[in-house]
Design a protein around this nucleic acid. Structure first.
Lengths: 132, 132
DNA sequence: TATATTTGCGCATTCAAATACCTAAATAGG
DNA sequence: CCTATTTAGGTATTTGAATGCGCAAATATA
């Protein structure tokens, strides 16, 4: 049960939460997102705080508070969300660039780079508007 | 500088070491692999022990000792090596299967599955004989 | 046989991500 | 104005991977 292809939990929380927030007409709070997604409430709260600082969300405190999109759904790509949490997605042939790889080229060839590029393009073309 | 696509260091050590062992005519030891790859000596030793137990390597103790392939290079695929360390490579749409994903289908669509399958096929067709 | 070398293996340590916890700040509603 | 609710944010704990360390076992070589 291993995965070559994995998002950090934080990135997954960010994307899932943004979709839920985009769908909610009048905002949605951490408790609700916890119920729907099953992630840790604390972790969700931390991730949403980062999205607020990244200027992707607006937060409202107090009863009936919650989170709202700062821009319209069609203007927010999955890649933006991902990179707000993880930093720029690197495209590189070697999955472990710091290794002293004494071969003519990376053992893995160019496949890693190609697949990362493909995925990146996919995330770039996918916006929150896909989930209305 | 984040990577969607990543091998654990252990898996990378396994693959790089197997390549080096396949190339060495008369075995190669942990120190040599450390020098060439730059991985932690301790970590390399641990990974090689697992490959010995998985019956992919033969080890010889004492001076002039080291590691040898148990089968011929052409008969060992990268996928086997990977799975000896990480367990079976899972093909699943959702990168986080335990999430209570309340959508019609996984937010990520089928791309994860497709890419994992593609990569798996690549690893299956690549053997240690490619590095003679 | 003695010694140095190298793997085998268990346990301790480190490190980052995930998680938990607690208090402050804001605010809706009575 | 008071109280309950909800986000903000700092700190502590947990967890698993990666590392480090020390000693035992094997063996080549002198």
């Amino acid at each position: 049960m291993s995965r070559v292809f994995s998002l950090s939990e934080a990135a997954s929380i960010a994307i899932h939460s943004m979709v839920l927030i985009a769908r909610a007409k009048n905002g949605i709070n951490v408790v609700k997102i916890t119920e729907v997604t099953g992630f840790s409430k604390n972790h969700i709260a931390k991730v949403l705080q980062r999205l607020v600082k990244a200027d992707m969300l607006r937060s409202v405190r107090g009863p009936a508070g919650g989170f709202y999109l700062k821009k319209e759904a069609g203007g927010i790509t999955f890649l933006e969300i991902y990179e707000a949490i993880e930093g720029p997605m690197e495209e590189t042939d070697c999955p472990l660039s710091y290794v002293l790889c004494n071969y003519d080229s990376c053992i893995m060839g160019t496949i890693i780079n190609e697949m990362t590029g493909e995925f990146k393009k996919y995330l770039e073309n996918k916006t929150l508007a896909s989930f209305n």
